[in-house]
Design a protein around this nucleic acid. Structure first.
Lengths: 241, 241
DNA sequence: CGGCGACTTGAGATCTTTCAAGCTGCGTGG
DNA sequence: CCACGCAGCTTGAAAGATCTCAAGTCGCCG
C-alpha cells in the first residue's frame, strides 16, 4: 500500500495550500495508475517527447533537467515523495525538459485522462493544481537567483536547507537528518558547478557546519550555521496558506 | 485606447495556446483596471508584500527579480506588452519575488477580485491561466539551465534570441530589430554577470553577429549567427498548440 | 581479489569579477 | 548657448573563483 500513501501525501499538501471540497478530495484520493520502479540514473521523460501521464513520486527523488548540446546537464527542480513531478505535462503534454531518477525510486504514472476527468467535474482542483505549479515556479525562481548571484558555498548550503525543510514538511524526516543518496556529480548538476568544485565546497561546509552525506543520509550538525551560509528564508516555499 | 489593445494581446496569446469558449473570451476582453504609468527603475511589487491585483504590461518591459542580502539582483523573468506579469499572484497573493520596471512603462492593474469572478464562471479560463503559468515556468527553467551551464557569450546571445522571438510573436516587431532600451547593467542582472563582463561580451557579439542596442532598439545583423552562438531552439517558448 | 563508481587532491588554465579611471551623450540650469 | 553633471559605456590590470586535466584513494560488489 506504499503508493496509496504517496497519493495521500500529495493530497495533503494540496489541501494545506488550497481549500478543496470534500468530493474533490475523494476524487483525488481515488487517483490511481501504474506503479513503476526506476533505477538510479534512469531518464523517465525526455525533452520534446509527448507524455500521456503525470508522474507522482512514491519513493526516491526525481530531477527535472535541461541539457546543453555538449551533454552538460542542469537540474532545474527536485521532486520528493508526494510531489507530482510533472503536473505541467497536463496542460502542456510535450515538455521542454526531461525527468531523471537520481536515486532508486518508485513512481506512479497517473494517466492524464484520469486527471482531466477529475478537473472537469471539480473546478476547485484546477485552481489547486495551478497553485501547486506556482509554488514550483517560486522554487525555480529562487534557484535561478542563487545560481546567478551566489557563490558555490552559498548555493550548496541553500540547496540542503531547502531539501531539509521540504523533507520535514512532507513528514519524511528532520530537516537536519534525512535520507538522500546524492552523488557529488548530482549536486553539481543541481547548483551549476563541476564535481571537483562541489567536492571542495562540501569539504568547506563539512568543516563549517558539519554537513555530510553518509550511507545515503544527509546530516547537518549545526543547521543554523548552514542556514546563515545560505541566507536561507523559507518563505518562498509557501508552506502555509 | 492603448490599454484595450494590451488586453486584446493577452487574450490573443491565451487563445493561441488554449481553446476558450466564446463567453469566456468576452469576459476576458471585458477586463479592466487602473492604468498606471511607471518610470524606468521603479519597483512595482516588493517581495513579501501582498498584492490585490495582477499587472498586465501595456507598454514597456517589466522584470521579475530576486535579491541577495548584499543588494545584488537577479532578474528571473521579463515581461513585454500583452504579458500578465504576475498571474501567479492570483493563486498566491504574497509573492516571494519583486517586479521592477526596466524601461518607462505602462501597466494595467487588474483587481484579483475581477479576475476571480471570471474564473468562477468560466472554468476553461482557469486552465488557460494555468497553462500560461506553465509556459512561464518553461522559460524560467531554460534561463536556469543557461545561467548554470552556459558561458557569457552563449547566455547573452540566448537572451536576445528569446526576446526577439517573443517580440515577434506578440507582433511588436521583427526578431532581429525590436524596441528595447536595456542598459548593460540590466542585461547583467538578467544573465547573472557583472556589467563589466557584459560590456566585453557585447563587444564580442557585436563583432560576431552585429548585435547592437542603439537609441532603445535592439538590432541584429546576422540573426542565425547569434542563434548558433546561443544554440537557440524556440520550442520551450511553446508558441503553438 | 579485481573492478568500478564515487570521492579526493594537486596544479595550472580559463573565465569572471573587482577596482579604477576615462569617455560619451544628453538634459538642465545659468 | 555653454558648462556642468550624471548615467551609461568602455578599457586596463590584477585578483579571485571556478574549471580542466590528471592521478590517486576508498569502499563496495561480484
Amino acid at each position: 500500500m506504499e503508493y496509496l500513501s504517496a497519493v495521500e501525501l500529495f493530497v495533503r499538501r494540496l489541501t494545506s495550500r488550497s481549500k478543496l471540497e470534500r468530493p474533490s478530495i475523494s476524487a483525488l484520493l481515488d487517483l490511481d495508475g501504474r506503479l513503476v520502479p526506476v533505477q538510479r540514473g534512469e531518464d523517465l521523460i525526455l525533452p520534446g517527447h509527448p507524455v500521456s501521464y503525470s508522474t507522482l513520486v512514491v519513493r526516491g527523488v526525481l530531477g527535472r533537467f535541461d541539457q546543453m548540446l555538449d551533454g552538460k546537464r542542469q537540474i532545474t527542480a527536485l521532486h520528493i515523495p508526494g510531489d507530482m513531478a510533472d503536473l505541467h505535462s497536463l496542460p502542456i503534454p510535450t515538455p521542454s525538459w526531461g525527468i531523471q531518477s537520481l536515486v532508486p525510486s518508485t513512481t506512479l504514472q497517473i494517466p492524464h485522462e484520469r486527471l482531466r476527468r477529475v478537473l472537469d467535474s471539480h473546478p476547485d482542483v484546477a485552481i489547486a493544481f495551478w497553485r501547486d505549479t506556482v509554488v514550483d515556479a517560486s522554487i525555480l525562481a529562487k534557484w535561478t537567483a542563487y545560481i546567478g548571484r551566489a557563490d558555490a558555498t552559498t548555493r550548496i548550503a541553500h540547496l540542503f536547507c531547502e531539501l531539509g525543510v521540504r523533507m520535514a514538511f512532507q513528514g519524511m524526516a528532520a530537516k537536519d537528518d534525512f535520507p538522500l543518496a546524492f552523488t557529488q556529480a548530482q549536486i553539481a548538476d543541481a547548483v551549476g558547478l563541476t564535481t571537483v568544485h562541489v567536492n571542495r565546497t562540501m569539504a568547506v561546509l563539512r568543516a563549517a557546519c558539519g554537513l555530510s552525506i553518509e550511507k545515503g543520509r544527509v546530516m547537518v550538525r549545526d543547521w543554523n550555521v548552514m542556514a546563515s551560509y545560505a541566507n536561507f528564508d523559507d518563505s518562498y516555499l509557501l508552506m502555509s496558506r
